[in-house]
Deep mutational scan, measured.
Amino acid sequence: KEMRNAYWEIALLPNLNNQQKRAFIRSLYDDPSQSANLLAEAKKLNDAQA
């Protein structure tokens, strides 16, 4: 469930391009235990690109 939530949050971040989203989501599938960390990194990048 945590992975699914992280997937959708990443997919809906407005300032990431599709390539960036795909990279984060690929990492999510590679290591679901890192969901919270990956989401935090994606949000950080999203904010930096705002």
Rank of each mutant, 00 (worst) to 15 (best):
P32Y: 08
D47Q: 09
N17L: 04
K1Q: 06
S35Y: 12
D47H: 13
I25N: 02
A11Q: 15
A36I: 08
W8T: 13
M3C: 13
R22T: 14
A23E: 10
A36G: 09
N17I: 03
P32V: 05
I10K: 00
L13K: 02
P14I: 05
D30F: 08
N37Y: 10
A50M: 10
L13A: 05
K44Q: 07
Q49P: 03
N15P: 00
K43D: 02
E2A: 07
A50E: 12
R22V: 14
L28R: 00
N37R: 13
L39Y: 03
S27P: 02
S35A: 10
S35Q: 10
I10P: 00
K43I: 10
A42N: 00
R4L: 15
A40Y: 06
S27Q: 09
N18C: 15
R4E: 15
L12I: 11
Q34A: 08
A36F: 05
S35G: 09
E41S: 08
W8V: 15
L45M: 08
S27Y: 09
Q49T: 06
L13P: 00
P32K: 03
K1T: 09
A50N: 09
Q19Y: 09
K21N: 00
N18E: 13
A48E: 15
L13S: 04
Q19C: 06
A6R: 05
I25T: 03
L45H: 03
F24C: 04
W8C: 15
N5L: 14
N46P: 01
L38F: 04
A36K: 13
P32N: 03
A40I: 10
A36E: 09
M3Y: 08
L12S: 13
R4N: 14
D31L: 04
L16F: 01
L13Q: 03
A50T: 07
L28V: 06
R26H: 12
D47P: 01
W8A: 14
I10S: 00
L39W: 03
E41N: 12
A50C: 10
F24M: 07
P14R: 05
A6I: 10
A48G: 08
F24W: 01
S35K: 14
L13I: 01
A6M: 15
K21F: 02
D30V: 10
N15T: 03
Y7Q: 12
A48V: 10
D31S: 09
E2R: 10
R26S: 15
I10E: 00
Q49W: 07
F24G: 02
R26N: 15
S33N: 08
E9H: 07
S33T: 09
S33E: 09
Q49S: 06
N5S: 15
L16P: 00
L13G: 00
L13D: 00
Q34Y: 05
E2K: 11
L12R: 14
L38C: 03
R22Y: 12
E2F: 01
Q19F: 11
P32H: 04
A42L: 01
E41W: 08
R26L: 15
Y7F: 14
L16Y: 00
D47I: 09
Y29Q: 14
A42F: 01
W8Y: 14
L45Q: 05
Q19G: 06
L16A: 00
K1I: 12
D30T: 09
D31P: 01
F24R: 02
R26Y: 11
K44G: 06
D47M: 08
Q49A: 13
Y29V: 13
Y7C: 06
N17E: 05
A48M: 07
M3P: 11
A23C: 09
L12G: 08
Q19K: 10
L38N: 02
I10F: 02
L45F: 03
Q20N: 02
Q34P: 01
S27F: 08
L38T: 05
E2C: 13
N18T: 10
D31K: 06
Q34I: 05
S33I: 04
R26K: 15
L13F: 05
K21W: 01
S27L: 14
N46Y: 01
D31E: 09
Q20F: 02
K44C: 08
R22A: 15
S27E: 10
A6P: 10
Y29M: 15
E41M: 10
A6T: 08
P32E: 05
N17P: 02
A42S: 03
K44P: 00
Q20P: 00
A11I: 14
A36S: 12
D31A: 07
Y29I: 13
A23G: 10
R22M: 14
K44M: 12
P32I: 05
Y29R: 14
A23N: 10
A50W: 05
Q34C: 08
A36D: 13
E9A: 10
P14V: 04
N46L: 00
Q34M: 11
L38P: 01
L28S: 02
A11K: 15
A40R: 08
S27H: 08
N18V: 13
L12F: 12
K21D: 01
Y29A: 14
N17T: 12
A48C: 08
A11V: 12
L39D: 00
F24A: 07
A50S: 10
D31M: 06
N18H: 14
F24T: 03
W8H: 15
N37H: 09
D31F: 11
S33A: 11
N17H: 07
A11G: 05
Y29T: 14
K21C: 03
D47E: 09
N17Q: 05
S33Y: 06
I25S: 02
D30W: 06
R22D: 15
N5Y: 11
L12N: 15
R26M: 15
D47R: 09
E9G: 06
D47F: 07
S35D: 03
N18L: 13
A42T: 01
E9M: 09
Y7K: 10
A40H: 10
N18A: 09
A36L: 08
I10N: 00
D47W: 06
D30I: 08
E41Y: 06
A6V: 05
W8I: 15
L28I: 12
M3A: 12
N37T: 06
L12C: 12
L28W: 04
P14F: 02
P32C: 04
S27G: 08
K43S: 06
N37K: 12
M3G: 12
Q34S: 08
L28G: 01
Q34R: 08
N17S: 12
R22P: 02
P32Q: 03
P32S: 04
Y7T: 06
K43C: 03
F24E: 01
L12H: 15
L39C: 04
A42W: 00
A36C: 11
R26W: 12
A6S: 09
D30G: 07
L16D: 00
S33P: 04
L16G: 00
M3E: 11
K1S: 11
Y7G: 13
A42Q: 00
I25A: 04
Y29C: 11
L45W: 03
L12Q: 08
L13V: 01
Y7P: 03
L12Y: 09
N5A: 12
E41K: 09
A23I: 14
K1A: 12
P14S: 05
L39K: 04
Q49R: 15
A42G: 01
P32R: 03
A40S: 10
L39T: 05
K21I: 04
D30Y: 07
I25D: 02
Q20M: 03
D31Y: 08
D30A: 13
A23P: 01
A50I: 13
